[in-house]
Amino acid sequence: MTWDQMQELMWPATQETFQMVGVATFCTVLLGLPLGVLLVLTSKGGALQNQPVNKVLGAVVNVARSLPFIILMIALISFTRWLTGNSLGWQAATVPLTVGAIPFFARLVETSVREVDRGLIEAVQAMGGSTWTLVRKTLVPEALPGIVASVTTTIIALIGYSAMAGTVGGGGLGDLAYRYGYLRFETTFMWIIVALIAIIVTVIQLAGDLAVRRLANRGRGGGRTRLLRPRAVTPDEDLVAS
């Protein structure tokens, strides 16, 4: 295979991967974030304490997480067809990707939200805030660094899952590496694709880490200043030190 041939195959595949992962991430955050918050709220001592609901949600999440993705994808074919009107292509692949990623993401969100200081929750309750205020103005904003880290982890997991999307004709980089590299013995091409995936994953991880650091460092000077030059002591820090 020549480089031109490779490129011709690689760019559409990269695009497919981004589309699949992008749409799936969006839907996962949309549905998984409320689920994760709900897991915390319904647990013991939570604002909406409800053991039966908590147990059922927990069980659903656990079962969904223990299903191998490839099985989940095949099991969901009819659901996918009902939802998207098609069971093939990258659009169809986003459905099982989303369903597979929601429980994973919800657990990560649950862990981050649970770490919000109980004192903050009490402060909002003492102000007369409702549960919705608590979620919107305290739990989610305070857990945001953790939630962003969870999104990063989820995107990377989705890139991994998307390699299996080829089974339903989803396309994407993973599928390309499998079909050309593995089935047609184009080992060089396979490694090039693997390297490309690695670069994409690394860039996403770095971007995610940077975002987390900036969020976590709110009020300690922006992240970039600290990365590029030694930290100058600001008057505020003088006060803290004294």
Partner: peptide, 22 residues
Amino acid sequence: LREARRRIGMVFQHFNLLASRT
């Protein structure tokens, strides 16, 4: 109760300020 609480201020030992807000 929420409305009654709005008229009772409370300060805490560990301040309980939101780090995400100015």
